[in-house]
Design a protein around this nucleic acid. Structure first.
Lengths: 341, 341
DNA sequence: CTTGGCACTCAGGAAATCCGAGTGCCAGTG
DNA sequence: CACTGGCACTCGGATTTCCTGAGTGCCAAG
């Protein structure tokens, strides 16, 4: 049976009231708080249908209704309208983020800001190496058998590795290597680097090949190294405030939040900066987060998302508000990153 | 009134039992579980004295006793014996830490290990820049008006800054500057760098002075920048397990744990690697942590501590076990750092 | 100083009770 | 046909009462 408009209104009202009060909402309360123009009895009939269809449920026989995951899903997809941020919030975003001095600072400020705005747990992924381009590669001799390899990306990120050379090496070779490396990879997309340099050693004299190979190997290694898919998290204290909003207690949640690999996967599927994903309750496969909802979006200067950020909270969260906050912060951060180019 | 030996035994027994059971312990239970050779009535008298002196307290009139902060203090200072780690634990430390590939990895592994061993919250400070020495300084031209300043310390840490030069600059000047900078600061203690280079600009021709000043300024800035006093935290989920061990709930604690500045201060006062500090309950000034105890120690290759690590848990923690774990991990990490030199 | 005895206290659990929000259903109405 | 008012019913949760037993403090005797 298709849901008519009023039933959708009822569902919306239920979600809104439940989110606001954290208590099951009954038919009477609904009519009082929203001017639906019909009597409680009518609402009850509608509710019965909504329940049959699985959008809402009763915790106990004689209690009001609460939305199910499916109900939230419908709400998010079709019933909620974007709630514009208050001027105060906009200002907060600006003043908070404008003071950032470098990339790391942008990330830590962002994550705190997001936690504060949404009063929930914020998660921000550091811009991924993989999706940026090379601005510069440098070789710095430390001793005759050690050299520091520095890689700078267009996002302002700097990776460095110490390369142990197989034997003593003179400046000339290094200089040559530096120049040719730079020529090969400058401006290149990180993902394109491996194929670009794989044959480099062969263009050197056999005597030098070992050294070149060592450097190339380290460079490749530093590129695939996913360990730098780091995360910043803030606002875990908000979980405690929300208190027993979570049935199974906080432990599984806190554990999940420390499982960065897991979170990265959830954040991942790096959506473009303009789209925004909402995952509700059981849609989050991993056990620990099945009582939580996650709102994520990508961010980054261009069309492609450089990395993702998001908010984790109870399924009973203020979706419109959270979505607005995440979206606004992501847009602003993207601007900053574009500016700092 | 000085406490005789038996009273101390009683206190020790109370602490141990309370930590183990999380429940107030009464006189009867004490005589049963520890062979004290006297009757419950006698114990009661001793307990009365201990209570009068403020070492223990009763939550309710008709309940057993629990240790006070003062009681824990005495226990830690005089009554507890170090509990050697189990072979399994020693092995865990080794296998867990030996796989570390770089400094950051050492830190993240350490913090997880510590959280796992103690089943509490672990906090590890990244090795502080301020207490290491300069191994190398490098200048890498990015464009004619931008140069990358790289600073490498003996702890394997690499700081980098981009310097915006006031005008176009040629290679020769940079090379000269690089050489003189390196000569001035190599091997120097970070804290000694500022005085060492403050007069450097004046030794250059007036035309070049602006450029040199820009570089020097950035270098100084990167040295005083405390923002790199970063922390790694793990095991917050353990707080939830300990559950309502904390009277005021988890919120203030989680908040305190996100206040890195605060934690750094607590960790701080970098003790030497060989000493270990225990702060109990109210000894932790900040409100949020007054229900917690903190066990910290410094770590680092030499005599001086490079940074600190520690564990945060409820006052009712297993002090001997925690102390042993923190000590062992710190020693092992120190060895690793010394080795990687 | 230690001990057994004894009266007393009281937190916390179990059982009993109450209340009212909320429901489903039905018959009546425009 | 959709809506409404009425009504009987349910039952979770709050409130109260009651009870129990661990634990205490004190005292007099060994």
């Amino acid at each position: 049976m298709p849901l008519d408009d009023r039933k959708l209104d009822v569902l919306r009202a239920i979600v809104e009231d439940y989110v606001a009060t954290q208590e099951p909402v009954g038919s009477k309360a609904l009519v009082d708080r929203h001017h639906l123009g019909v009597s409680p009895a009518t609402i009850r009939n509608d509710m019965a249908v909504l329940e049959e269809e699985g959008y809402i449920a009763q915790p106990h026989t004689s209690a009001g209704r609460i939305p199910t995951d499916k109900g939230y899903r419908l709400f998010v997809d079709r019933l909620s309208t974007v709630k514009p941020l208050s001027p105060a919030e906009r200002r907060a975003i600006q003043t908070f983020l404008d003071g950032a001095v470098d990339l790391d600072d942008v990330v830590t400020r962002t994550v705190r800001l997001l936690a504060q705005l949404t009063r929930q747990v914020a998660v921000v992924q550091y811009p991924s190496l993989a999706r940026s381009t090379v601005r510069h590669v440098e070789l710095v001799p430390l001793s005759t058998s050690r050299v520091l390899l520095v890689l700078i990306t267009d996002t302002g990120r700097v990776e460095q590795r110490i390369v142990e050379l197989p034997g003593d090496t003179d400046e000339a070779l290094l200089g040559d290597l530096r120049a040719r490396l730079g020529h090969l990879v400058a401006g290149l997309d990180i993902s394109a680097v491996p194929t670009s340099i794989e044959n480099l050693p062969e263009s050197f004299s056999p005597a030098d090949r070992q050294v070149v190979s060592a450097v190339v190997a380290t460079l490749l290694e530093s590129l695939v190294d996913r360990s730098d898919e780091r995360l910043a998290i803030a606002g875990t204290a908000n979980l405690a405030r929300y208190g027993q909003g979570f049935d199974q207690g906080l432990e599984p949640l806190l554990e999940a939040l420390e499982e960065h690999v897991l979170l990265l996967r959830l954040l991942g599927e790096a959506t473009s900066p303009s789209t925004l994903t909402v995952r509700i309750g059981h849609e989050n496969a991993p056990a620990g987060l099945s009582a939580a909802s996650i709102v994520t979006t990508g961010y980054g200067p261009g069309e492609r998302a450089l990395a993702s950020m998001g908010v984790v909270g109870p399924t009973r969260m203020d979706y419109p508000g959270t979505i607005a906050a995440v979206g606004a912060v992501a847009r602003y951060v993207s601007q900053i990153l574009a500016g700092n180019n």
